[in-house]
């Protein structure tokens, strides 16, 4: 059983690192957005893995999964807002580059 948990955590760490690096290096908001999602999913995976480790055989204890669903729900809301911002940015300018959007005004 232990290998399953630790393998899940390793995968989670890899996914998170990919997400962080992606956020750092990408300039396109949609790509940054996807990387953020990647990090969220990595976190979800950890939550589920820790639940498995913590409660072992108790199938009725699902705290980690509940947290994961919470994260998914909030991520959905975040996607709605984030995409709306990206769409409105697209409407304003032809090319979208987060480095160009460095001022709140004008």
């Amino acid at each position: 059983m232990i290998p399953l948990v630790s393998n899940s955590l390793i995968l989670s760490a890899v996914l998170f690192t990919i997400g962080v690096v992606g956020v750092m290096i990408h300039r396109h908001p949609v790509m940054i957005f996807m990387c953020v999602e990647l990090m969220l999913n990595a976190a979800n995976l950890s939550l589920v893995a820790f639940n498995k480790q913590h409660y072992a055989e108790n199938w009725h204890a699902v705290d980690g999964q509940v947290y994961a669903f919470m994260v998914i729900a909030i991520a959905a809301a975040e996607v709605a807002v984030g995409l709306a911002i990206i769409v409105s940015l697209f409407k304003r300018r032809a090319r979208v580059d987060v480095d160009e959007v460095n001022q709140l005004r004008n």
Binding site: V20, V23, M24, R27, I32, V98, D99, V101, N102, Q103, L104
Partner: peptide
């Protein structure tokens, strides 16, 4: 306070 999102992400990291 540069306004660049990546810098902020860097600070977070």
């Amino acid at each position: 306070q540069t306004g660049f999102v990546r810098n902020y992400a860097m600070y977070l990291l």
